[in-house]
């Protein structure tokens, strides 16, 4: 045992643990871990995308197949579908780790829980938000949106889903201790997501009309930045309470 030098010197005066990796390295490790776990359960990755495609298909069937008329409601359809789809996988954002005890170990690791949860949220966005943003232009084409609007749609959904993942992280952390949290999670998250919906749908509409949409994108970006500063703090506080 002694040759392992596993037990550190017990009287060391410094507070920080020896050999502790930096905060960025820890966040990267967490991101890598969550991506690896997600790809080992790959079937779950496709579900939000399939749901998004399904919801956008409902509208032509329910309203009209005429592309000229669908074009008018396209921004609303895309954003409502994007918001709902990004809620789907949220319930398990922290729940799996809470159930097997790994989240507790991270909470007791002496590392900032805010950074760890921010990394988990980033992984969640990479796995659901980014794919949604990538297929949103496809869905838009199916709703009669002209090609010149697609970059604007890609950009706005990309920014909007960042904020959705951040808000979702708060909701998931708050409902971590609730058994069947799906509906409650949506009820908590959607009102907070209204500004994303408003600015996102507006940017999309401007893009469809061929008007400059930079200002609306800026507002979406501002929401995302604001979310990045606030959401990990709130999520960490809620996770700690729910682990207690």
């Amino acid at each position: 045992m002694s040759e392992l030098s596993v037990v550190p010197s017990l009287t060391r005066p410094e507070r920080a643990p020896r050999n502790a990796p930096g905060a960025a390295a820890v966040a990267w490790m967490m991101l890598e871990r969550d991506l690896k776990l997600a790809f080992r359960k790959a079937s779950q990755l496709v579900q939000p995308l399939a749901f998004f495609a399904m919801v956008t298909t409902l509208f032509p069937l329910a309203i009209t197949p005429e592309l000229t008329r669908l074009r008018h409601i396209a921004s609303g359809v895309l954003w409502a579908a994007a918001l709902l789809s990004s809620l789907l996988a949220l319930e398990f954002l922290f729940r799996d780790d809470a159930q097997d005890g790994t989240l507790e170990q991270y909470a007791l690791s002496g590392r900032a829980l805010t950074g760890l949860l921010a990394a988990k949220t980033a992984a969640h966005w990479l796995l659901t938000g980014l794919p949604l943003a990538l297929i949103a232009p496809l869905a838009a084409v199916s709703l009669g949106v002209p090609a010149h609007a697609l970059p604007g749609i890609l950009a706005s959904v990309t920014l909007g889903t960042v904020t959705m993942s951040l808000l979702g992280a708060i909701g998931a952390a708050l409902t971590l201790g609730v058994r069947r949290a799906g509906a409650l999670l949506s009820l908590l998250t959607l009102p907070l997501a209204i500004p994303v919906l408003i600015f996102g749908a507006h940017a999309t509409q401007l893009a469809i009309r061929g008007q400059p949409y930079g200002a609306a994108l800026t507002l979406l970006g501002a929401l995302a930045v604001f979310g990045m500063t606030l959401a990990p703090l709130a999520a960490a506080a809620a996770v700690r309470i729910n682990l207690e």
């Binding site: 643990p17 020896r18 050999n19 502790a20 990796p21 820890v26 490790m29 967490m30 871990r33 790994t102 170990q105 991270y106 690791s109 002496g110 590392r111 760890l116």
Partner: peptide, 10 residues
């Protein structure tokens, strides 16, 4: 790795 390496490099 993912459990302990957030605390210390080994």
């Amino acid at each position: 790795h993912y459990w302990v390496a957030v605390r210390r490099r080994f």
